[in-house]
Design a protein around this nucleic acid. Sequence first.
DNA 1: GACAAATGATACAACAATGGTATCATTTGT
DNA 2: ACAAATGATACCATTGTTGTATCATTTGTC
Lengths: 133, 133
Amino acid sequence: MKLITRDVDYAIRALCLIAGGEDKLVSAGELVSVLGIPRPFLRKNLQKLHKAGILNACQGHRGGFSLALRPDKIRVVDIISIFQGGFRLNECVFKKQPCPRRATCRLKKQIDAIGRYVARKLAGITIAYLLKG
Amino acid sequence: MKLITRDVDYAIRALCLIAGGEDKLVSAGELVSVLGIPRPFLRKNLQKLHKAGILNACQGHRGGFSLALRPDKIRVVDIISIFQGGFRLNECVFKKQPCPRRATCRLKKQIDAIGRYVARKLAGITIAYLLKG
DNA sequence: GACAAATGATACAACAATGGTATCATTTGT
DNA sequence: ACAAATGATACCATTGTTGTATCATTTGTC
């Protein structure tokens, strides 16, 4: 039950590095050598960030990636959404049926509230925030 | 990234029912017929709750389960711990190495704080609370 | 004591999610 | 033309979740 999975963690590290480059293009190769992360996995994940509109990509020789958004507009909750198809801590275990008992629905209400809190917190953490440490 | 998995959900429902029985023994069969849950799975999970000291079990004819603790002493966070071997929302993705970059550790601090908050909330939800809805 | 109804223990299996590989096509600076 | 980069896609290994199956043991009832 990890909040931050590997792909998300890698993505955040990569975004921090790319943000440090100040609009200079950063290639997957450079990121791999700095981060020590499996290259094909990182490449796949960078492509996802590109498709999601977080990164600009330039193909060809001397190509690479740069941020498509300002670092203070890139939020951890968005990265999680990209890699997990939306952020929810509280998917109902019973998708079809209505919850069989009231007690469980009372639980669901609490879990929903916790989920909203976590999402709000994760929306407050941006790449800019992580950089200025 | 579900906070409540099926086994935990089933366990909570079962505990609510058993708590309703007021120290009467409740058998797996009764729980199955009320909850509509796969019997062998429920049985396995009830055994876990027994080993964890949440349930008393009586073998033999007319046997079954009863609560080993008062309903206000059984917390959702404990049930999660039993089925997932401890509650943590924030396992470090890099177990061996220290976190390679400071930004990531700054993230970790935030995630840790969120994890503590969630654990505290889940410790506030007890079987007694769910029943008195 | 025999029997049936219950739990105890344990091993196995199907499925999905996570983490990672491999390959080939395409683009582009030199 | 060539090399260095990304784009697209398919595949694979490991792990966690969600069960199933089996047999042994206990115990109330006849």
